[in-house]
Nucleic acid binder design. Structure first.
Length: 195
DNA sequence: CGGAAGATTTCT
DNA sequence: GAAATCTTCCGA
């Protein structure tokens, strides 16, 4: 079952936690790829120095975050990699959830080709990697996740514990880098490795 | 228009 | 530990 609009209207931290264990799906002409979301980070626009939309900064890049939840926020980082976020909360509240890692469950051969890597644990264990494996690019910026190309669905898997940790690679944000807004499925082997 | 920095990955 | 590599944003 595809997640409905209402699911995305909660705040960023809550959405980050509730997206764990759900399945991200991308349908392309090459085929369909799916992965269980095992790692997320919340970015809380107004108060979060690490967020692109800090102090409600509106730019060409962040404008999608001002819509209500349920859209894809995708940006390029370091000139080489894309990262995918899910927009959270109501209109004019710019919060989002970065999808940091997936456990691949479908389209694995396609992922291996795109990544040019045969190691299952290297396909989606990081925000840049999973976008490459699922062929998520700026073409998908602003896509409505309630439609049929890129979306998230329910998954009936095993029960799991959620672990909260500090977010990665945002030392520049000072105090905000201490917030425990990174969430992972405890003991899952597909999470990205923190240095 | 120029300059600086980055929500990463990969290789040494 | 450091390079790769270029878009995005901001200030002038």
């Amino acid at each position: 079952m595809k997640l409905k609009k209402e699911f995305y209207l909660k705040n960023g931290v809550e959405l980050a936690k509730s997206l764990l264990g759900k399945v991200l799906v991308h349908e392309t002409k090459d085929g369909i790829t799916k992965g269980i979301i095992v790692e997320t980070e919340a970015y809380m626009g107004e108060i979060d120095a690490a967020a692109h939309s800090y102090k409600n900064k509106n730019s060409k890049r962040t404008e999608i975050q001002f819509k209500e939840g349920g859209y894809a926020y995708i940006y390029m980082i370091y000139g080489m990699y894309y990262c995918m976020n899910v927009v959270a909360n109501q209109e004019n509240i710019c919060e989002s959830v970065l999808v940091r890692a997936l456990e691949p469950i479908d389209g694995i051969e396609i992922m291996k080709q795109r990544r040019r890597d045969k190691n299952l644990f290297n396909l989606c264990s990081g925000p840049g990697k999973l976008c490459q494996a699922m062929n998520i690019t700026k073409e998908q910026y602003g896509i409505d996740l309630c439609k049929d190309q890129l979306y998230i669905e329910e998954f009936e898997g095993k029960n799991f514990d959620i672990e909260a940790t500090k977010r990665l690679n945002i030392e520049y944000a000072k105090d905000a880098s201490e917030y425990l807004w990174r969430f992972i499925i405890k003991e899952n082997k597909f999470v990205s490795k923190s240095k």
